[in-house]
Design a protein around this nucleic acid. Sequence first.
DNA 1: GATCATAGTCGTCTTCCTGACGATAAACAT
DNA 2: ATGTTTATCGTCAGGAAGACGACTATGATC
Lengths: 253, 253
Amino acid sequence: MPPYDPSAFPPFAVTVDLVVLTVRRDALCALAVQRGEPPFQGRWALPGGFVRPDEDLAAAAARELVEETGLCAHEPDAPAQDNGAHLEQLATYGDPERDPRMRVVSVAHLALAPDLPARRAGGDAHSARWAPVEALLNQTGFGREGEPAAPLAFDHAKILADGVERARSKIEYSSLATAFCPPEFTVGELRRVYEAVWGVVLDPRNFHRKVTGTPGFLVPTGGTTTRQGGRPAQLFRAGGATLLNPPMLRPEV
Amino acid sequence: MPPYDPSAFPPFAVTVDLVVLTVRRDALCALAVQRGEPPFQGRWALPGGFVRPDEDLAAAAARELVEETGLCAHEPDAPAQDNGAHLEQLATYGDPERDPRMRVVSVAHLALAPDLPARRAGGDAHSARWAPVEALLNQTGFGREGEPAAPLAFDHAKILADGVERARSKIEYSSLATAFCPPEFTVGELRRVYEAVWGVVLDPRNFHRKVTGTPGFLVPTGGTTTRQGGRPAQLFRAGGATLLNPPMLRPEV
DNA sequence: GATCATAGTCGTCTTCCTGACGATAAACAT
DNA sequence: ATGTTTATCGTCAGGAAGACGACTATGATC
């Protein structure tokens, strides 16, 4: 272990990058911003920024999240009961070549948020937008106007893929899928979250039996809603349970 | 996003710290080193060191692992078939106060290794040693000579606890427990790994049925051994499967 | 107003997995 | 020979999940 000497270690920049996921129109979407300067000028990237001198990593991620979305963050252990988003550390990316300007180590964070009725309440309104993760990850095969036409900047495609995979696996064994839902939601809305994140179709009857039979997962509020059409559905809030045992099972292939 | 300017971002040091776990004498043990200089001089800590200017984070972790143990590392997706250890990124710790000297962001990695017949083959033979994680995490209640008598330096107790928890949960749904075993091992040896890591007692018959019935988990080598006493047991190697589905179930409480 | 489409909710049945535990097998120790 | 230890096979009951039938309560359409 080298002795302590401020000039003995190489200079690193430390940033946080955010994978902010939501479910919009039955598709898993991520927040992307358009870069205004080189490198990768004009390309889409994940939101992020430098960690400040006296700022914890989680605080930096929460600050960036507020700046980009107006959402305030939960810590990972707290159930997403109010309007805030779930925020957790994802992984750290430090390839020496990942930023052509200098050595940048980025601590990526994963945020899960409900689809915001009011978009980007605060912050500098630069060109941030939601895009389906399919479009962001497959630079081919998306023809809709305004969609990103090139791969994400830096190694952000890898970061996004890791974040999506984390979300996909974490909703299996935790109640985290409720972070994608508004404070009150129906079983069907929760099921559509699972279907969008996993990209599968689930049996409504078995899903209903499973989530209502798992203690602490859902708490009925007493109200009902018919916003999805059809027969009115019970409204629920997220219960106190964070770990689901036994877990939700993701269908094969 | 601030413009690029080398003087515009605060100086960070970036290190890697290692949680190296093994199973020795039916106990989960971690590698600890004794600090030779302040701060925390004389206290035990996790092995680690600075990331070099042109070194990837995983490469830095692998280098530290070789220096401390002589083990070479696998990437996370490769099954631990030869003598190398499993190595994966754990989490990043960047509290501004975590190192009193300066701002240090540490990317912790988790390594799982078989109990080494030959200890610390290479590297600087400073005072590195295995200690049961119970002793390292509970600064009270361990009276054996040579055991650490004070909490780990810095935030290393938190890092170690996170690493242990990662290992405990990951052997549930992956074949990672084989990383604690030598290249050839018996079902009973694998069971004792689970028992040591989880701190539980498992039914040998149900365990045997489970692991031999999971396709791709274990591959019989044809040999047998009697090194555990009793009836000779079949020898196995780790199979190609990395994810166990359905997972091993950790007994309640 | 009757009918239809849509979505939600309750049950049933079969299959698979697990935990509990009896029984047998093959080595070594005395 | 007998006991001890560890390994391995088998049986049985209970729980969870997939497949799917049936019924309910809305709004939309004719």
